[in-house]
Every structure is written in C-alpha cells, then in structure tokens.
Design a protein around this nucleic acid. Structure first.
Length: 430
RNA sequence: GGAGGGCUCGCCUAGUGGCCGAUGGCGCCGGUCUUGAAAACCGGUAAGGGGAAACUCUUCGUGGGUUCGAAUCCCACGCCCUCCGCCA
C-alpha cells in the first residue's frame, strides 16, 4: 500500500510508473477522495472539540448551581451532528482504504518494460546446460521409472496437481530442505523459524495476497474462523513484525522458514499439468529480510546471491533475469527471477523469485523502526525463495540422469542423504 | 466444552463518572558532577489521524451502549492465566 498523500504528490510520475504494470491510476479521483476525507476529519474534529467544551461548561454551571438543561440539550445536538459526520468520514475512509489496498507497488525504473516473462532481461548465467549422449527424460518419466515419484496415487488421494514422493525421493526432499536451511542459517546469517501454515485475513492483507487475490488461496472456514493456507512462508515471516516498531540498530533482520505452500492455481488450467512444476501443495524454504528502505536495493542483491548459492552448491545451471515491470507480483517494486535449466524441457524455468517490496508491505502490516534519536519510519521488506523443493528435485533428476536411468546426487547433498546415487531400480547407493 | 481471574503508555504499576492522555517505579535518551565510568541529581520519553504551522482530534484488549461528560457503569466478543473434561 502507498501513502495516498505521497501518491498524489508524485502525480504524473505515479501514473506513469503504475501504467508500466498495467494499472491505470485515477489521480483526480484519488485526490478528490483524499481531500473529501480530510475535510470530513477536520469537521468531526471541530465538533468533538466543541462537544468537550460544552461538557466542561455543564460541569462549571452545575458547580455554581445554575440550570444545565439548555447546555445539555446543546451537547446532545452536537452529538447527533458528530454521529452524522463520523458516519460520512468512516464511509470516505473506507472507500479510500479500499482503493489504496488495490493499487500495486510502483515498479522501479530499473525493471524493464513489458507485461510477461518474455520481456525479462537476462542478467547473468552460471554453469552450462549438460549434454547427453542419449535423449534426456523429464523428471516425471525418471521419477516414476525409479519408483520415487507417484503422481497417479497423488491424484487418487487429492486430485490433480499433487505429488507423492517415496523412498529415495522422499529422502531427497527432506535432505534438500535441511541442506538449504543449513546454508542460510550457517553461512548466510538467517534465523530459522517454524511458523503457522494457516493465517488470518489480516495477515494475508499485510503481504498483499488480500483483498485482491483471494481466488489464488485455499481458505478454511472451520468453527466460524476464516483461515487461509499460506501460499508461501513469506506471509507468516514478513508479518511476524506486523504492528511492531523495530529497533533500527537491529536491522537488517534475516529470517528463513521451511513450510508447505498451498496455491489454488486458479487460471492456470492446462499449464504445467505434468510433474512437480506447478502443484497445489509444494514445500519451500523461504527467505525474508527487513531493512532500512534506503538499503533495500542492495539487500535484494545480497538475497539473490543467497538463492544463487543454493543452485551453485548443487551444481545446477541457472540464469538470473530481471522481471518486466508488468510481470512482477503485486507487492514488488523490483524482482529477480532465477531460472534453472531443465533438460526435460530443454529450457530455463523459474525456480526462485526474489523481490524488493520497499515499504509497500510494511505500510500494510505496519512494520516500523525507530532509530537512536527516536525517529520512526517504515522498514523495507524483501522475500525470496531459497529454494522450492519440488522444482529442485526435478532439476536434479533431469540434469544428473545417466543413460541407464540412474541419477547421481550432487556431492554437497550426499551428507544429507546418506547415498550418492539412485540406481535405475530406485535403490539408494551408499 | 465447564468454572474462576486478568487485559492501562517498552516492562511493572496507580487510577470506581469531570481538572485523567492518564500516577509512580524500572528501562531508555539528554544534561550536571567525574580523568573516565558508576552513583547521585535535573530534564525528557506512547501511538496514530488532520494541518504549512500554531494546534487539534482519536486511542486505557475490541466493538456497541448509558451519560452533558467514561480508563472508571452496562452488554457482546477477543486474548492471556489457573482449575476440570477431552486431545497430538
């Protein structure tokens, strides 16, 4: 969310930047609504001040034994008027809030033009796509042949877009999670958290999923409580400090959590229906950082580095791209995607998304800081995947497959797995 | 699910209808003193809205209500604690 005043002051520049992501800002409408709300606030303030004065007069009149009947009547009249003005004020404030909650973050000018992934600009590449002396299989064929992935039974249990991992496959998932968490906590300075997977509407609003994207979420309504399943650990992690004032000296804060993620994938019918790429439930290690707003762009570079370290450590070829202004998430002002090479598809696919949200989420969730001089301000929030387990499993299987159908594990992972190869029959080779 | 107790400005705490946006202590910040530090003493120290500013309004868990006037009275809800039941 933006400060409505700041948006109005930015004027045409705000309109231009929002237009880059396909949002048409009605600047005059906003200005008008803001000024009407402010006038209403001012009027209500005046009336309340008057009402206080009259109450004082009643008291002093009563002390002197004078008749208070007339004064009391006047106070009652003022109260009625206050009621009316406050109702108007509430209505205007509600409309303004609703409008503000629906305006996406302002893309930085460093984000390229465009409205889809086709306009992403490559920043750098790491590693080379492997070459095979045989036609490489995709992770579904590999995983099912090895008996470590079972999509058929997942569908039996829950319908499409779910997965079951078995034996060495399940162990691979668990090992990856431990590997990523160790990397972030021991080498990158993140504090590991274990967080709720069900959160309130207010929490979902803090990070920007609500009110606009409810259809992307799974919702529960048990015992008259509306709770949503988290689509990413970014939601509980970034909201940890909602309504708080952090000590500026403690920044930056770096948090990580390993959680399942639940996404309805509404509107993606027929897209990536095969395999581990797009599921209703997947597991992910997430990174979240809180920092001073002026540090956020540098912090984003740092965080991308942490995500890259995950891939580099596993020996997976990847590239980093800057997302186009119109392709970024609602809360982001700049996003880098990391794409891993998938031999089964013969191309790079998104495996991590690292976003600088500036103060956009902090204003929604009211996450502030106070420096030594007592000066208060909003913090900046950043989030990045580091990394999703399913897509990483797919990348390892496809990149490390051998002609006989066996798969070699990345050396860095061996201590976490207890085996170095998954044999063609699915047996882990110690 | 049942019974009781609680929720005040970072923490603890005073406050049972008006001069209370709210007492005191701790903590924190600044100053005096000191070679420096500690101690002592003095001063400051909640958040938010509106306003260029002066200033003003709101907030004592949340929402309603009574009243000219509510931290204080009434109602509902939420959260926390203790005990009972159930449960991983």
């Amino acid at each position: 969310m933006h400060d409505p005043r700041a948006l109005v002051d930015m004027g045409a520049d705000a309109v231009r930047r929002l237009a880059r992501r396909g949002y048409t800002l009605d600047l005059e409408g906003l200005e008008d609504l803001l000024s009407r709300r402010n006038k209403s606030i001012h009027r209500a303030d005046e009336l309340r001040a008057e009402s206080k004065r009259v109450a004082q007069e009643v008291q002093s009149a009563a002390r002197q034994g004078a008749d208070t009947g007339e004064l009391k009547q006047r106070a009652r009249d003022i109260k009625d008027e206050i009621r009316d003005v406050e109702a108007e004020q509430e209505q205007l404030a509600g409309r303004l809030n609703e409008l503000m909650l629906g305006i996406p973050n302002l893309p930085l000018d460093t984000a390229p033009d465009g409205d889809s992934e086709d306009f992403a600009v490559e920043v750098r590449r790491h590693g080379d796509p492997p070459t095979f002396a045989f036609p490489p299989k995709d992770h579904v064929d590999l995983g099912e042949a090895l008996g470590i992935l079972d999509f058929g039974r997942a569908t039996k249990l829950s319908g499409p877009r779910f997965s079951v991992a078995r034996g060495a496959g399940a162990r691979l998932e668990r090992g990856l999670a431990a590997y990523f968490l160790d990397l972030h906590t021991r080498r990158h300075g993140y504090v590991e958290h274990s967080v709720p997977f069900l959160v309130t509407p207010a929490t979902m609003t803090g990070t920007g999923q609500l009110p606009k994207f409810e259809e992307d979420l799974f919702k529960t309504g048990t015992n008259n409580r509306d709770l949503y399943l988290i689509p990413t650990a970014e939601v509980p992690l970034a909201n940890l400090h909602a309504e708080e004032i952090l000590d500026a000296g403690d920044l930056p804060l770096a948090y990580t959590a390993y959680t399942p993620c639940f996404r309805s994938e509404a509107g993606s019918y027929g897209k990536d229906t095969r395999g581990l790429i797009r599921l209703h439930q997947f597991a992910k290690v997430e990174m979240v950082r809180f920092c001073a707003p002026e540090e956020s762009q540098r912090e984003l570079e740092t965080m991308v580095g942490h995500a890259e370290a995950c891939l580099a450590g596993l020996g997976l070829p990847y590239r980093v791209v800057t997302l186009a202004a119109g392709d970024m998430g609602f809360s982001a002002q700049l996003t880098y995607d990391i794409e891993v090479y998938l031999p089964g598809q013969g191309r790079y696919r998104e495996i991590s998304s690292c976003s600088d949200c500036g103060t956009f989420q902090a204003r929604r969730a009211r996450i502030r800081s106070r420096d030594k001089d007592g000066k208060r301000g909003l913090v900046a929030t950043l989030n990045g995947s580091g990394l999703p387990i399913g897509r990483t499993v797919a990348a390892i299987l496809e990149n490390n497959q051998r002609a006989d159908g066996s798969v070699v594990m990345p050396p860095a992972l061996v201590p976490y797995l207890g085996f170095h190869t998954i044999a063609a029959d699915g047996t882990p080779q110690v």
